[in-house]
Structures are given as structure tokens and as C-alpha cells.
Amino acid sequence: MKIKIFIFIILNSILLSSCIGVKKLKYLQPSENLQLNQYGLIPVAYEKYRIKKDDILTMTLITSDENAAKFLTNENTTYFKGGTNPNDGRLRTGGLIVDPNGYITIYGLGEFYVYGLTLSEVTDLVQAKLNQVLYNEGKAEVRMNIGSIKYYMVGEVSNPGEKIEQSNRIDLLQAIAKSGDLTRFADRRHIRIIREYPEGKKNITLDITRDDILNSPYFYLQSGDQVIIDPLKEKISGLGGGTTLGDATQFLSLGMQAIATYVFFKSL
């Protein structure tokens, strides 16, 4: 009788330890800490972006002066929104790469040190130089932006690797979706983001099982972010709660080893 009870306890412990609860897998579960605005909506929070080396910036020029865009070369210029009229005055460059020293070069305007600056600060620098070239402030308006976001997904994700988003905004859930979703072993409560700043790197931890993550300024990725998805302890211990034949064999083997150990010491 005692051995039956012991066997039951051993097998039950193995099964319980192999289970991954729904709360560990479900995204955006209700949280009391979720903050809403006066309209009952979730306010969007962004961390102000600061330019990094190897970033690709885009420059949009809006002007009615035909001479205002002459400093742009044909090689690095495309018509804005697919326009075909060279006199419409709405042009933008194909991409301004921030070099290893932190500079961008704009033909006709020169070099600009942009590393660590915000987009608005870079816009002000280029606008001031453009006004000098045109000899008349207000002839053209410059708008600087991020051309694309390059980030990295590693760990318990279906499709890890370098990712490039051809826009200037992507949130963490969108990045996960574009990577084929997380595996069943992913620790959704401790997703780490390594973010680079001019002063150094920061390790950020987010919990995507709670809906109050939507209030976090780190919910939106920035170019250069490294998203690390660590495994749950169930995978590390080998008791992953799986449904595969290999998992079932492993559970049975552990149970048989425990029973054999008990019988051996019982017979002494």
C-alpha cells in the first residue's frame, strides 16, 4: 500500500512540475496598474529617440522654390510619394547613413554630427544650414526621420535573427508576430531588451502577460534593440510540459528511476 502511495506521489509531482500554466502563456492579461486617460483610452508613451551610429535617416524637403532642391543629387534623391513631376518641389533623399564617427553628409550642405541627438535637434541643424544656403529663411522646410528600424530577436522565438522594419515605429508585440511568435517555452514575464545610449547600454525587462505593458515607454522598439527571450525553468529542468513522445518518455524514465531507487533502499 505504501509503495502505491509513493508511486502516486512521484508521478503526480512529475506531472505537476511539467505543466506550464495558462498565466505564463497568455498575452496582455488584465492588470490593476493599467492607466487610462480621461477618454478611457491607453495613452501612448514613447522614449525620445537619440541617433545611433549606422542609423539610416531620411530627409524630406518641402518647398515651392525650384532652386531649393538643387543641392540634392539624382543619385540620392527620389520623388516624394512616387511623384514624377520634378517641379512639384517635394523631394526626399534615399537615405543618409550615420557613419562610424557619428556624421551624416548631405550633398550641398556638408557634414553634420548627429550621434546622440534627437530627430528634432538634427532637423534644426539641417534647417539652419539650409536657410544659410538659400539666403532666405522660409524658402524650404526640412523634416528628418528614421528610414528604418533594425532590431534583433534571439532566444525562444520561432524565427530569430536580424529584423528590419521599413517604417519608423514598431512595438514589441508586432516584432514578436513578425518573428513567428514565441515558443511554448518562452518566459513571457521576463523579456529583456538591451538598448544602446550614447552613455552606454541599458537592460530593460518587460512582462507581456500584463496589459499595463502598454503604458511602458519601452513597449516601442528602437533601432539597434536586442530582444532576448529567455526560456522558462520548465525547459531548463527538462520538464517542459510537452506533448511529444520524447517528453513522455522522459517523464516515464524519471518515474521509473524514482521507483527503482525506492525499491532498492526498501530491500536493504
Rank of each mutant, 00 (worst) to 15 (best):
residue 21 G to R: 09
residue 185 F to D: 05
residue 226 Q to R: 06
residue 128 A to E: 13
residue 71 F to N: 09
residue 111 E to H: 09
residue 159 N to K: 15
residue 153 M to P: 05
residue 178 K to T: 03
residue 4 K to H: 08
residue 11 L to H: 02
residue 153 M to R: 07
residue 229 I to L: 14
residue 84 T to K: 15
residue 25 L to I: 09
residue 64 S to A: 08
residue 163 K to A: 04
residue 186 A to R: 02
residue 83 G to Q: 07
residue 121 E to P: 05
residue 241 G to S: 01
residue 244 T to M: 10
residue 151 Y to I: 07
residue 84 T to I: 14
residue 83 G to L: 04
residue 31 S to D: 12
residue 55 D to H: 11
residue 52 K to I: 05
residue 168 N to V: 03
residue 47 E to G: 10
residue 149 I to F: 11
residue 232 L to I: 07
residue 73 T to H: 09
residue 259 I to V: 15
residue 109 L to P: 01
residue 87 N to P: 01
residue 203 N to D: 15
residue 74 N to Q: 10
residue 262 Y to C: 08
residue 6 F to V: 15
residue 48 K to R: 13
residue 205 T to I: 14
residue 60 T to V: 07
residue 237 S to G: 00
residue 217 P to R: 00
residue 157 V to F: 02
residue 258 A to F: 01
residue 242 G to Q: 12
residue 50 R to H: 03
residue 103 Y to M: 08
residue 26 K to R: 13
residue 47 E to H: 14
residue 41 L to V: 04
residue 219 F to K: 05
residue 246 G to C: 01
residue 16 L to T: 06
residue 54 D to V: 05
residue 222 Q to E: 15
residue 67 N to K: 14
residue 98 V to Q: 09
residue 190 H to G: 09
residue 210 R to Q: 14
residue 188 R to A: 09
residue 161 G to T: 06
residue 101 N to D: 15
residue 157 V to R: 01
residue 222 Q to P: 08
residue 128 A to M: 07
residue 85 N to T: 01
residue 127 Q to T: 11
residue 177 A to L: 07
residue 200 G to H: 08
residue 212 D to L: 07
residue 246 G to P: 02
residue 218 Y to T: 07
residue 131 N to D: 15
residue 76 N to I: 10
residue 222 Q to W: 08
residue 213 I to P: 04
residue 167 S to K: 11
residue 56 I to S: 09
residue 130 L to R: 02
residue 59 M to Q: 01
residue 215 N to Q: 08
residue 81 K to L: 11
residue 4 K to A: 11
residue 249 T to G: 11
residue 258 A to E: 04
residue 50 R to P: 00
residue 204 I to K: 03
residue 201 K to H: 10
residue 150 K to H: 08
residue 66 E to H: 11
residue 261 T to V: 09
residue 156 E to P: 03
residue 268 L to M: 14
residue 159 N to G: 02
residue 266 K to L: 15
residue 125 L to V: 01
residue 128 A to N: 12
residue 41 L to G: 02
residue 220 Y to V: 02
residue 98 V to F: 07
residue 261 T to Q: 10
residue 32 E to F: 02
residue 258 A to K: 00
residue 125 L to G: 01
residue 167 S to L: 00
residue 98 V to N: 08
residue 41 L to F: 10
residue 216 S to I: 00
residue 266 K to P: 01
residue 183 T to S: 14
residue 143 R to I: 05
residue 35 Q to L: 09
residue 95 G to R: 04
residue 265 F to Y: 12
residue 104 I to K: 04
residue 190 H to T: 06
residue 96 L to F: 02
residue 268 L to I: 15
residue 138 G to A: 00
residue 192 R to N: 08
residue 120 S to P: 02
residue 208 I to E: 04
residue 24 K to Y: 13
residue 1 M to E: 14
